[in-house]
Simulated scan of single mutants.
Amino acid sequence: MATTENGRVTRGTLVIDADRCKGCELCIAACPPSVLEMSTDVNEMGYRYPLLHDGCTGCTACQMVCPDYVFDVYRLKAPRA
């Protein structure tokens, strides 16, 4: 886990393949911590794509609903005491 500069705890992160996205926005609704939002920019195909903000939990909800396989989800390991 890591704490971001705004104080949110981040337990995971995503790699988003923006060029593959077709802008369906299913990931936005599926994200429990609400850390995804659609960009105002468009990809090479002309679709808006999701952007990630701090606070990802690595829950994989976005990855599970994405019909275009846009997300690679990684969980961060908690530091050992």
Rank of each mutant, 00 (worst) to 15 (best):
P79W: 08
N43A: 04
S39E: 05
D68I: 07
A2D: 14
P67M: 05
G23I: 10
C27N: 03
T57F: 14
C21S: 04
Y47T: 00
V70I: 09
G23T: 06
R8V: 15
R75F: 08
G23K: 08
M45V: 05
V9F: 08
R80V: 10
T57V: 14
M38W: 09
L51K: 14
A61S: 11
V15Y: 06
D17G: 00
R20N: 01
G46A: 00
C59A: 12
V35D: 10
Y69M: 08
V15L: 07
R8N: 14
C59I: 10
L52I: 02
E25S: 13
G58S: 05
P67A: 08
L51M: 13
F71H: 15
R75Q: 05
C59S: 12
G55Q: 07
G7N: 07
I28T: 12
A2S: 13
Y49L: 03
E5M: 10
M64Q: 06
P67T: 10
P79D: 03
R75A: 04
Q63T: 11
A29K: 13
E25C: 13
C27M: 04
E5F: 09
P50S: 07
A81K: 08
E44M: 14
N43L: 06
E37N: 13
G7Q: 07
A61F: 10
V35E: 05
C66D: 03
N6Y: 00
L14V: 14
G58P: 02
K22P: 12
E44W: 13
P50Q: 08
S39N: 08
L76P: 00
S34V: 12
